[in-house]
Design a protein around this nucleic acid. Structure first.
Lengths: 226, 226
DNA sequence: ATTAAGAATTAGTTGAAGCTAAATTGTCTC
DNA sequence: GAGACAATTTAGCTTCAACTAATTCTTAAT
């Protein structure tokens, strides 16, 4: 009922909740209380409380004991946060010499404080880029986001040429390891062998040589048929 | 008693209080409850409450019914915030085309979110500058700040050459007006006439010509004998 | 159909930081 | 020295967003 027109400023917590709900429900389904709690490192009752508030202000739809989904208004707010985060990550790496494995925490705090104007100025200074340092698409100021279907390297067709597009983690240790082994967005990659039972994946990089990586990392490397 | 070693993260409010207490007590005296309340736009009892908390954590010294002063620990924290604010203001104007009259609000929000590392990187990118866009000195990362005695243009010796060093306001309207009339840090200025009873001040700019400004603005323009 | 396990929710508490209204203290004047 | 007035503080309440403990609901297995 409320906030149909008024774009009330959201609290830091609300912004965090919307972001994780967006991620958890991005594959169409519901985000559950316990998943949200796990992602935000809070207790489930805290989530129940916030779900009530978010639902009251029309940002999410709540089906008791099932989970939540974003409303259009909620999705708009979530995409705004994601735009902020990704523009910040790119700006920090491009203009202030941050490493791609170190930007996440800084962006995480800044995204709640920056104005839309600053984000747009940063985006402008970078030439209105489409992707962040990890290859994730940056939503436009209007709230549109590119939706490309990408395949984890772990599930790619053996022998076929792919392009590594996105690295789906923010964990510094994993990111550092991947960068050291040349596994960054833009690389050409062909899987030459895949062991069964979640075994290692052998691949050829272009440019670059052979690599063998485990199942867990192969799951994070999102590719597109070349 | 607490926090002798632990550098506990401070809340947004605490940081704001420390900053205004620093400014209010910079001329040596005490910052009073009502002055703090007026600057932060909160009610006096809210200040009393916060003063208790700040005093408990050793950031200020409180003399009941007199006022408060920063402890060394409090001063260090306040100078850290001021460094953040001023580095941010300069970075935004130098690198992201903000006007000097528009940076304040953005810096005000960001200063609570940025890491020390980001501030140091920004400062580095700018060549470790000494002054912000308004001519105010930027404290070093170690917590030192330049203390130069500056004279308001309103109290300057008539006929003597001065250099305009600092513009002591963050009000966008006043800043815009001053910039339009060439009254920016670095300008040479000589007062040729001063009317009594808080009347207008006539001055000559180098480079630039004659100007007549009111007492209120003349009070904001801090100068040094050339 | 019942029950046990697990997930979700409600109830009640806490701490920050704001508020108003009431009480207190300090100071200035007569 | 006694008021009077302003400034300050105390008391008590509100909201946000967390928590623990207790309760309720769903689901899946016997």
């Amino acid at each position: 009922m409320s906030a149909l027109l008024a774009d009330v400023p959201l609290s830091r917590s609300v912004e965090d909740y919307l972001k994780v709900i967006y991620h958890l429900s991005s594959q169409g389904g519901f985000a559950t209380t316990s998943d949200i709690a796990a992602m935000l490192l809070v207790a489930p009752p805290s989530v129940s409380g916030m779900v009530r508030r978010l639902s009251d202000s029309g940002l999410i739809e709540h089906v008791p004991y099932r989970g939540v989904q974003l409303t259009n208004q909620g999705r708009r707010a979530a995409l705004r946060m994601i735009r902020r985060h990704r523009v910040l990550e790119l700006y920090l790496t491009e203009r202030l010499q941050y490493d791609w494995d170190g930007v996440h925490d800084e962006a995480e705090r800044l995204e709640h404080a920056v104005s839309d104007e600053l984000i747009d100025r940063m985006a402008m200074a970078l030439g209105n880029p489409q992707y962040d340092p990890h290859g994730a698409p940056i939503p436009t100021a209007a709230g549109e986001i590119e939706e490309t279907v990408l395949v984890p390297l772990a599930e790619v067709e053996v022998g076929a040429p792919y392009e590594l597009r996105q690295v789906d983690t923010e964990d510094p240790a994993r990111l550092r390891y991947l960068a050291e082994h040349g596994l960054v967005p833009g690389k050409g990659v062909t899987v030459t062998e895949r062991q069964p039972f979640n075994g290692p994946v052998t691949l050829t990089l272009v440019p670059g040589g052979e690599r063998v990586i485990g199942q867990e990392l192969a799951q994070l490397l999102l590719c597109k048929r070349a």
